[in-house]
Nucleic acid binder design. Structure first.
Length: 559
RNA sequence: AACUCCAUGGUGUAACGGUAGCACAACAGAUUUUGGUUCUGUUUGUCAAGGUUCGAAUCCUUGUGGAGUUGCCA
């Protein structure tokens, strides 16, 4: 057709193109269907970007539909957090907010329709009996003794199930398909079960609830969804999805397409495991900055744009891949490098006294806000006689490739002066406590001196009198093995005990007082940091979002 | 020894029977008032064996390896 094959499309978008070209549908409708039983994680972000992204690209729409068919697990708390997370990611469902529970009456009607057509029956067996009757992977199942119950009896019993005459588990409604089907999902699947539990939206209106399989396709059909995109584990459910659409008077015919879910190394993604990390206090909560949840990522300072870009790069396939966390971090750095304002901050302070600098003098130096965006201009940074530098920027016995400060050597203090270290002061234990240095007035602003001498390093600093005290939290990967999820061992055994390092006494450039929660900035030479939600004016707290690439860290000899 | 699906550098992902490309990672070098950024270059790949074809990552067969499925969860 005329569609240019410029950028390559994933197999789902190709299917949509074909459907559009063959005029199978006159528009494209997708949906994101979370169950409100937990917090969204980055795996959901992949699905959100796919579904809402397609809606944008094809000028269609994407519905947000809560798949709330299991009252025992679900709660409004989750509904709210899911909405917030989707909005944060930059997507919107407009007027198209739906709940599967809105369709309970319709689904009930359709169940009756099935019974009336001899395609569903009430089964009195216990779940154990049903399990053994189902057969297994190698062997066919056997028919339930209740399979050929008279139509009227089925109708009566199903009504009485709805009326609440039976206890949980006493009876179920089953689709009558084929107990010998090679696909276990087709062996007379349960479509309604009795649950006497209050539902977060319908309260106690119902005590029977439709199963996922009896809900999802019909909900898609009711909403005129054209492409129902889900993850690979629903592949075996597709025949059932289609069976219901074929045997029910549905208003439209959606198509289910499966793709591979997202997995990342050095983390876990399953709801159960994330819940365990929270409940057993291995992390501070669902929004702990180390968590792969959307709320954790947001608190960590990852920009939504970076998540969207990441989802674009990893693509959509049916191959069960594991993505490298460095790909995510690279997306984060790419966005932040372009957007983040630069500041100076000293994480582990070492005192420096400029002995030839006047005691009461303060100079305000101009520093570029963001070299990627020169139009943003400069900020003023105060310089004075007593400063802090990073402990890592000084070494007494420095190896050849160490470009930073050491006794007798000179470095540039960013935007200020060239500084030479003359003397090291130590405490009784031999720890370095202070550096005595001199500055060269001819290098004002950090300029090269007229004599043409060179310097190998530029380091950051903060004026002692002007510094803001802050706590800085450094995060590392939560697990120290690539796939803590797999294998026989308990994933908790692979927890990285150093995943959180708190630096209680960081010294910040005073301009950092104006940074708002939710904004991520660069601490020059260190990384990207954001103000934590626990921060206050009196005691600021910063999170390290991600470090800068650090070729020195890789090159330096191990201590 | 059921059914369904999957297999391209270290990790992802393109190539729709016609030059195996891109990103990340790694490694060099250049630039740099961030050991950042940017730029240049290098290394590494079609699971295997047959077949069809002038030509196969792509189509066919068989193997091998992996995943999912035996909830009244979704």
């Amino acid at each position: 057709m005329t569609t240019p094959r410029s950028a390559s499309k994933d197999f789902i978008r190709e299917i949509i193109d074909e459907d559009l070209n063959s005029a199978k549908h006159d528009g494209t409708v997708t949906r994101f269907p979370p169950e409100p039983n937990g917090y969204l994680h980055i795996g959901h972000a992949k699905s959100i970007c796919l579904n809402f992204g397609i809606a944008q690209e094809y000028d269609g729409r994407c519905h947000l539909r809560f798949d709330d068919t299991n009252p025992a697990k679900e709660d409004t708390e989750y509904v709210d957090s899911i909405k917030e997370d989707i909005h944060w990611l930059g997507f919107d469902w407009g007027d198209h907010l739906y709940f599967a529970s809105d369709y309970f009456e319709k689904l009930f009607e359709w169940a009756v329709h099935l019974i009336e057509n001899g395609k569903a029956y009430v089964d009195d067996q216990s779940s154990d009996e049903m399990r053994s009757g189902r057969g297994d992977l190698q062997n066919p199942g056997t028919d339930s003794p209740f399979r050929n119950r008279p139509l009227k009896e089925n109708l009566d019993l199903f009504d009485r199930m709805r009326a609440g005459e039976f206890k949980d588990g006493e009876k179920v409604l089953r689709a009558k398909i084929d107990m010998a089907h090679p696909n276990l999902n087709m062996r007379d699947p349960v479509i309604y079960r009795i649950v006497h539990t209050e539902h977060h939206r319908t309260g106690d209106t119902w005590c029977i609830y439709p199963m996922y399989d009896f809900t999802h396709g019909q909900s898609d059909a009711l909403e005129y969804v054209t492409h129902s995109l889900c993850t690979l584990e629903f592949e075996n459910h597709r025949p059932l999805y289609e069976w219901f659409l074929e045997n029910l008077p549905v208003p439209s015919r959606p198509r289910q397409i499966e793709f591979s879910r997202l997995s990342l190394n050095y983390t876990v993604m399953s709801k159960r495991k994330l819940l365990q990390l929270v409940e057993e206090n291995y992390v501070s909560g669902w929004n702990d900055p180390r968590m792969p949840t959307i709320s954790g990522i947001r608190r960590r300072g990852y920009p939504a744009e970076a998540i969207r870009n990441f989802c674009k790069t990893i693509g959509i396939t049916k191959f069960k891949s594991t993505n490298d966390i460095s790909l995510l971090e690279s997306s984060v750095r790419e966005v932040l490098n372009a957007d983040a304002s630069r500041f100076m901050a000293v994480l582990k302070p070492l005192k420096v006294v400029i002995t030839n600098y006047p005691e009461d003098q303060v100079e305000q130096f101009d520093a570029v806000i963001n070299p990627e965006k020169p139009e943003l201009g400069t900020r003023k940074v105060p310089f004075s006689r007593e400063l802090f530098i990073e402990q890592d920027d000084f070494m007494e016995d420095a190896p050849k490739k160490f470009f930073r400060l050491t006794v007798g050597k000179e470095v540039r203090f960013r935007c200020a002066y060239w500084i030479r270290c003359n003397e090291v002061i130590k405490d009784d234990d031999g720890n370095v406590t202070e550096l005595r240095c001199t500055y060269d007035p001819e290098t004002r602003g950090g300029e090269n001196p007229p004599d043409g001498r060179k310097v190998k390093a530029t380091i950051h600093w903060v004026s002692a009198d002007h510094a803001l005290d802050a706590e800085v939290r450094l995060y590392d990967r939560l697990f120290n093995t690539e796939s803590p999820d797999s294998g026989d061992s308990n994933f908790l055994e692979h927890l990285n005990s150093d995943s959180l390092e708190i630096l209680p006494a960081a010294k910040l450039e005073p301009n950092l007082a104006d940074v708002a929660v939710g904004e991520t900035v660069q601490f020059e030479r260190l990384g990207y940091f954001c103000v934590d939600i626990e921060s206050s004016d009196e005691s600021p707290v910063f999170n390290r979002t991600v470090g800068l690439r650090d070729s020195w860290a890789k090159a330096k000899p191990k201590s």
